[in-house]
Design a protein around this nucleic acid. Structure first.
Length: 714
DNA sequence: TTTTGAAGTCTCTCC
DNA sequence: GACTTCAAAA
């Protein structure tokens, strides 16, 4: 069976190999690679690119902005630009390719390799955060950052924020005090956008304006806590990088001098802080190429600003601008509809996407009676297309938020259709995985308060007060590694304390630098932890097998530190990391959030839950800007297919949020009259009373029988 | 006083 | 379903 989780694990294994690649000193790779470049035939750029792509790919030095509409060969152009640079003698390790996701970095470097040979492997590529991490491990100490810092993921950062919140006594007294996730969100937004906190509160959280001073106090405490405890959050990675390249010293020169060319993908999704980093990195050469599509800017919730791309020509004087407008992906009827959707957007670079792909069916707008009918329609149509020869991996179902695919997943499982889910429940967010990792993290960084707290709270007889008391005692002893052993617990916690002390001692004494050391450590932790797991959680078996997998994965890392850092920065999201070897031959359907689908394409795409309040999300209806972003998100979703597009919406939704009753819902506002004119409509009724026949084997359902009588065109 | 279980409140997108 | 709040149990 193909589950999201098992695939996530497989992808994590891939990360292992990537990680060791990433950490390799490129100078060691260099000499042999160069010869391969020279031996390689030169690429015939003019024959393989259209005029606009050619201009972008072969652009000489200096800033370049490529405005690339959906499906216009953006990746291709960037890959050829890398090839062009290499063929013109730029050393691969002097090129930095910044992407938004690890997946696109892999894909691009893989394609570049096919084009120009293995030289491209020495090109530095990765996300902003992963690149920041690499630089900070190498140069951070000169900037006052400890060498052994631990990276916190978002949940960790929120937990730490909660500790600050509780410490300052805000947890009980006031009514409606913002919760930890809100606190963290405001903080993160402040760091990434550089908007002052009061302004963020006024704009996004007017109800919390009265707590303005409390926010400042908590943030101050949070910041102090981080540095005392050796912790670094995602935002810090960028922040320290920016500070490093903006300083006046030789260090800034050195870091900026690492690269001669910087290429940035998905530039519309960068934020103010990232823009500062880029300006710092380009202080000497100005060889910066950015690619983006303002119509696909969908990450403002994490501080991305469309201004970066709109203002690029002003920020980098003399920048060339190339627009890619020929769409190679979709048929004309699909393009007509998506062009109409995005034409309603306010401020943008005007692009006129066109295609030579004439013909093809009009996109479908499907009105389903309710959620069950929606699910049935999607599954039936998928099977039908599959029978017509479209492989499952050439189809995807897209939705606004991860939880919206629940019903569909049940049905797919029942009918034996394999699928993989992107952007869903993440392996590393599972409580039991985080529990085990907490043990490893305090070994790595004894000051890691978040992990201590988590771990202590797991132990029977230890609650909030005892946990905090133990942590305070350790802080008082300057986090000496024996300080926990000297701590005197109250009687009810004594047994737990003893076993924990013994475990930690055993772990500290086991050799750390032998192969598979991390796996051994996890096994030891589990001798204590597995019983706790059985006690605390339901569905024990799958959780235990997750931990088995975690042990296996850990075996691939050279050290505990490498393992933990990789997990924070390269979380296995699911199978989006799947593009290798035999596994890519698995024919599985893709379920994805609209966000995670960006940059991908399929033969057939289903967009479900196209209901006002769901897509656009009800939370975004408050402001014009947010609605605009939702519109772009819908545009991203609808512009993924090559040949078949289905937009589905259920009429009656059993909505527990509003008094648990059926309510009539309305089609998403983005499918306005003009858009609908380009579509063909279908109404799908409530499913017949008979349940679907259980599948004899994968895809063995008699479709015609199931579909009979359930279509009624209007 | 502290822990723990149970009822009640919302529920996005990602590095 | 995860997280918070609240009241009973140790």
């Amino acid at each position: 069976m193909t589950t999201a989780r098992s695939q996530a694990l497989a992808s994590l294994l891939l990360v292992v190999s990537l990680y060791s690649n990433l950490m390799q000193d490129p100078s060691r790779v260099y000499p042999s690679r160069v010869r391969e470049v020279e031996a390689k035939r030169t690429t015939d750029f003019a024959a393989e690119l259209n005029p606009a792509q050619l201009r972008a790919a072969t652009h000489a030095d200096g800033p370049l902005l490529i405005i690339a509409g959906a499906g216009t060969g953006k990746t291709r152009t960037l890959v050829y630009r890398v090839a062009h640079l290499l063929e013109n003698g730029v050393r691969p390790e002097r090129i930095l390719l910044l992407t938004f996701t690890r997946r696109s970095a892999q894909e691009m470097l893989g394609r570049a390799e096919r084009l120009v040979g293995s030289a491209s492997r020495a090109v530095h590529g990765g996300t902003f955060h992963a690149t920041a991490h690499r630089l900070l491990r190498r140069f951070g100490q000169s900037a006052g950052l400890p060498a052994d810092f631990t990276i916190m993921d978002q949940a960790d950062a929120e937990d730490l924020m909660q500790l600050s919140r509780a410490k300052l006594g805000f947890s009980e007294k006031k009514k409606r005090f913002p919760k930890k996730s809100t606190l963290h969100h405001v903080y993160s937004r402040h760091v990434n956008t550089e908007i002052p906190v009061p302004a963020i509160l006024s704009e996004d959280y007017p109800q919390y304006r009265e707590f303005e001073e409390d926010f400042s106090k908590i943030f101050a405490d949070y910041t102090a806590r981080k540095s005392e405890r050796n912790l670094v959050d995602y935002d810090d990675l960028l922040l320290f990088w920016a500070l490093l390249v903006e300083s006046d010293g030789a260090l800034a020169e050195k870091i900026a001098g690492l690269y001669d060319h910087i290429l940035v993908d998905e530039y519309q999704d960068t934020n103010q802080l990232q823009s500062r980093i880029l300006r710092g990195m380009c202080r000497t050469h100005r060889n910066i190429t950015v690619v983006g599509d303002d119509a696909q800017s969908i990450y403002s919730f994490r501080g991305a600003t469309i201004r970066n791309i709109l203002d690029f020509p002003a920020q980098f004087q003399g920048a060339s601008v190339v627009a890619l407008e020929e769409n190679y992906r979709s048929t004309q009827p699909i393009l007509d509809v998506t062009n109409t959707v995005i034409s309603r957007a306010e401020e943008r670079y005007t692009k006129n996407l066109f295609t030579k792909r004439e013909g093809g069916e009009k996109p479908w707008l499907v009105t389903a009676h309710d959620e069950a009918a929606q699910t049935r329609f999607v599954v039936d149509r998928i099977l039908e297309l599959h029978e017509e020869g479209v492989p499952l991996h050439e189809m995807s179902v897209l939705f606004r938020a991860g939880y919206m695919s629940a019903d569909l997943e049940i049905e797919l499982t029942a009918r034996g259709i394999p699928y993989e889910k992107w952007g869903g429940i993440k392996f590393l967010e599972a409580a039991h995985v985080k529990d085990v990792l907490a043990f490893l993290r305090i070994l790595e960084n004894p000051r890691d308060e978040v992990s201590w707290y988590r771990l202590l709270m797991l132990m029977p007889g230890i609650g909030e007060t005892t946990a905090r008391g133990a942590i305070d005692a350790m802080a008082l002893a300057a986090w000496d590694s024996d300080s926990f052993g000297r701590y005197e617990p109250p009687p009810r916690a004594r047994a737990a304390h003893t076993s924990l002390v013994q475990l930690l001692a055993a772990l500290r004494n086991s050799p750390a630098d032998v192969e598979g050391a991390v796996t051994v450590e996890i096994a030891r932790v589990r001798r204590l932890y597995d019983d706790i797991l059985r006690e605390r959680y339901d569905r024990v078996e799958p959780r235990l097998s997750d931990l088995d997998q975690l042990q296996t994965i850990a075996g691939g890392y050279p050290s505990r530190a490498a393992f933990l850092s990789a997990l924070a920065l390269e979380p296995p999201q699911a199978t989006q990391d799947f593009g290798f070897g035999a596994d890519s031959e698995d024919d599985v359907l893709v379920l994805s959030t609209a966000h995670s689908a960006k940059g991908c394409e399929w033969d057939a795409v289903f967009v479900i839950w196209a209901v006002d309040g769901w897509f656009p999300s009800a939370r975004s209806l408050g402001s014009e800007d947010q609605i605009e972003e939702e519109r772009r998100l819908m545009y991203v979703a609808m512009s993924r297919p090559r040949n078949h597009l289905f937009v589905v919406y259920p009429l009656n939704v059993y909505d527990t949020r509003r008094g648990a009753d059926y309510s009539m819902d309305q089609l998403s506002r983005f499918l306005d009259r003009g858009v609908r004119e380009g579509m063909q409509r279908v109404v799908v009724d409530r499913p017949e009373s008979a349940p679907p026949e259980p599948a004899a084997g994968p895809l063995a359902v008699d479709l015609r029988a199931l579909l009979k009588g359930r279509f009624g065109a209007t």
